[in-house]
Write a protein that binds this DNA or RNA. Structure first.
Lengths: 170, 170
DNA sequence: GCCGTAGTTCAAAAAAACTTGAACAAACTT
DNA sequence: AAGTTTGTTCAAGTTTTTTTGAACTACGGC
């Protein structure tokens, strides 16, 4: 038997060399974004699959648990990174990746960035109160200056996001 | 005794209420960026301190280990988020935060974003090779299209970074 | 109405990331 | 040059995050 050719099929688990590589690519990708490995595996496999895949397909092909696949798909749906495909008469649901940058970036900003910016802003208000309550130290001036700086950072962030979104979307 | 006033000093560890709150703010901040908690603590305390602090100050005030403080300061230096202050005749080194957005954003992009973009690009080349080696399946066309898409994502990212940097810096 | 398949949930196990602390190196002091 | 002080390194310990798997719900066909 000849196993030397780098042809399709029969890699470590049940993935082709190409699938394996694409999955690895996305695993690294999502790690940068601070998302769990399984999201990268799932999205990566969907990304390089000509046809939609079901939860069971993902479990079988990636060798991950049903729980992981289920939770991973949910997160990806919420992020707008996958969509359900027409499940032709089949009871189970099949998934396709969003392959345009726009929904991906949009979803990430909406779900992961904006909430943090918002909570940051409200914490900033509390901070300002605390600084004002701070006894009339010599430092008061300094504290308020620094907090003002934080405020300007937040505002700058708020201005940048839409531009970012416009540049990456479309 | 009267502990009701929200005045300075005497909080949980040795931090004032304000320091505590600013540190918490940055702890959350760095988490979003995928950096360890201790970086947020250190940077946060420096940020709200009128005078530069030494490694020992940080250990004492934050109640973290010397190891953490040392490694944390190193990372912050590499990121350009802290600078050494003039250590007036003292043997030990004192640190000040960079409080302008420019060096902070610049450092983060240089150290955390660019390297990933670069390695992504080189992996992409390998991926392209693998796809071409893939037997002349019906799918070949499809694979190459998807990989081309990845390539365009990377390029888009490369275009966006300088704009981002320009908007946030200054 | 019962059985089988699809998918969700969540407590416990496993893995990954971070922090500690003790040993070490370097550099100043006396 | 012996002793201090400052800071670094890294293996082991701790904490946090992620994954697993078994119990459960829901739906559909028979």
């Amino acid at each position: 038997m000849d196993f030397t050719s780098p042809q399709s099929e029969a890699e470590p688990n049940g993935l082709t060399a190409l699938q394996e590589q694409v999955v690895g690519y996305f695993v690294d990708g999502v790690r940068v974004l601070g998302l769990p490995r399984s999201l990268g595996e799932i999205y990566g496999l969907l990304f390089i699959s000509p046809d939609p895949l079901s939860l069971d397909d993902l479990v079988r092909l990636l060798g991950i648990s049903k729980g992981s696949a289920s939770q991973g798909l949910r997160t990806l749906r919420v992020l707008g990174a996958v969509k359900e495909a027409e499940n032709n008469g089949d009871r189970r649901t099949y998934y396709q990746p969003s392959v345009e940058l726009k929904p991906l970036v949009g979803g990430f900003i909406r779900e992961q960035v904006r909430p943090h910016l918002e909570s940051g802003k409200s914490k900033l208000r509390l901070l300002q109160d605390t600084a004002k309550e701070t006894a009339d130290h010599d430092d008061r001036e300094f504290f308020l200056d620094r907090i003002g700086r934080l405020d300007s950072w937040m505002k700058r962030g708020g201005q940048v996001l839409p531009v970012l979104q416009k540049m990456l979307g479309q």
